[in-house]
Amino acid sequence: MRHSTFFWFFLPTGLAMLLFIAFPIVSVISQSVFTPHEAVFVESENCGPFGCTTETTIDQDATAALREAKPLGQFVGLQIYLDRGHLATSEVAAAWRSTDSMGAFFKTINNLPFYRAMGFTLTYTFTVTPLLIILGFAIAVAVNSLHRHLKGLVIFFSLLPMIVTPLIGSLILFWMVDSRGVLGNFLQWMADDPDLSLKASTGLTWIMLIVYGVWHSAPFAFVVFYAGLQTLPQDTLESSRIDGATRWQQIRYVVIPHIMPLVTFVALIQIMDNFRVLEPIIGFNAEAHARSLSWIILNDLNGETQLLSSAATTSVLTILGVSILLSPVLVRTWRDFNSKA
């Protein structure tokens, strides 16, 4: 295909991505180093018979002129990155100096909003991802041994938790584990504690969100692994059986190596998606105990006064986090491409 033909074919989609993904990233980065102008104040002295008073008023014209002259706002460099709402360098340094044990240090750090959100986001990502891979694999192996007619039905029901809107799925579970809901009642009966509420404790809230995350994403792993099992080399499996491999050994030495590339694929997609966790926190009404990076951004943008600079800063930090998580994959893709060429 000639360059010019390629250009015309690719132009519409390229333009869409350039205007609504690439430019916004630039805009987000620039917003994170600028703050809106403060109003220009003028002090005027009013002298009357009872002495002089100074009055401070906003100079509307000067403020408008300043905003006109520098529409981006006031350049503040990395100031927003370092403030208490984000990286909080001075608070961290102070905590490092004043605390004598690592435990106490982390406890102080954990009270800073950004680090708390980071802590939850990473915990969520790295507990949900392995758990859903294990559960998805177990379902795939079990379904694979089912009778042909049952498979379709099982796949239909298995897809539901994944297909359903995340906010809706989490609301449905939230109503069930509510202390008046059916699962909530059941748990109270199990724990023999009529006041048990999953919403009241941080630990239980986190577990609830993680369970939701696994429930929501396990079907994806299941479907991918199930497809992988269909292409299992039957003769390898059979010869391992003739060599006397037990069922477990067949899975361990034949099945798992065969689907390992798929495990990497699922892990990659799921790390990407779990890192942006937001809807379950809203659905489970869990923001008192668990906040993610996405939640902080939403909160900044949704408030009475939109804190654009603060949201932009968190966005940039989130993008950096995603890039760090994904860098191994990119390096691998790059190597694959070069080895092919």
Binding site: M17, F20, I297, L301, Q306, V322
Partner: peptide, 29 residues
């Protein structure tokens, strides 16, 4: 078959990885 195809696909992969909410503050203004 040109090399820029690879780079466009990689760019798309990076864009896919980005949480959409991080772009929103870039749109609003």
């Amino acid at each position: 078959g040109f090399k820029y195809v690879f780079w466009l696909l990689i760019a798309a992969l990076i864009f896919r990885a980005m949480p959409p909410i991080t772009l929103v503050s870039g749109y609003l203004l």
